[in-house]
Computed example of a mutant assay.
Amino acid sequence: MDTPSADEFEWLTLDEDEELLWGDTPHRLSLLLSIGVGLPLCLVIVGIPLVVSSYLHHTNTNYVITTTAVYKKRGIFSRSVQRVEFDKVQNTSYQQSMMGSYFGYGTVEIATAGTGGVEMRFRNVESPREVQTKINERSAETENGTNGEDAEAVLDEILTELQAIRQSIDEPAEASSAESDRSKAEPAASGTGTEESL
């Protein structure tokens, strides 16, 4: 799977730290069913809109994986862009029909936490298992990165608290030590003064 250029997806706006990893349209051969049904119907004029509609839906649908999220863009006359961040991805799966298995395309389903179901589908994408693997890898990396940052933040907080506790313990100890030294010095000073007066 080659890394595409962001110029291929003019509708996509990436964040500063976000990079494009994969992007594609539905597999060309997934149009065979629509064409197979539409061509005979062209004789009665009903099939022409079916074939044209299938082709336009195919060319105006994009699926994208970046370093932070997955995107799905649809729309012929209007545009609908759906985004799911990797930290929300709960589960992924892929399915292939008999024709999809033969020609190497299938549908990848992405379920998210909180919805309890499939949030996004990449329909008829080439090499669905590879696409699913790429999503799972990025999701795991994001989860590990977030957990690592959380653990580091907690450790920093604990260290700061321990330093504050140590400082609060050391200050009274130093003060009582100084007071003890002063009290020892005072009797010695008063003793010398008495001897001089005698």
Rank of each mutant, 00 (worst) to 15 (best):
E179L: 10
Q132S: 10
K72C: 01
Y94E: 02
I135Y: 00
S97K: 03
E195F: 13
V70T: 04
V118P: 03
D2R: 12
Q167Y: 12
R166H: 15
E8S: 14
E130P: 00
I48L: 13
A164F: 08
E130R: 03
S127N: 13
L162P: 02
A113Q: 15
S139F: 00
T194A: 14
Q90R: 10
I135E: 00
S34I: 02
E195I: 12
E149A: 11
E10K: 12
A113E: 09
E179D: 13
S30Y: 02
S93H: 09
S101I: 03
Q95T: 10
Q167I: 08
Q132Y: 05
Q167R: 15
R123D: 04
L198A: 15
P172E: 02
K134M: 13
N91S: 15
Y71C: 01
S101K: 12
P4C: 04
P128W: 11
E16Q: 11
R74I: 08
A188H: 09
G104A: 04
I158C: 04
A151Y: 11
S139C: 07
A185I: 09
D24K: 04
V81W: 01
Q167E: 15
R83H: 05
T194Q: 13
I158R: 14
K72P: 03
S97H: 03
L155F: 09
D24E: 10
E195V: 11
P49W: 00
S54V: 08
G148P: 03
L162T: 11
A6K: 05
N136S: 13
S30I: 01
T192P: 01
W22N: 04
D15Q: 10
H58N: 12
V64D: 02
G148L: 05
G145W: 06
E10L: 14
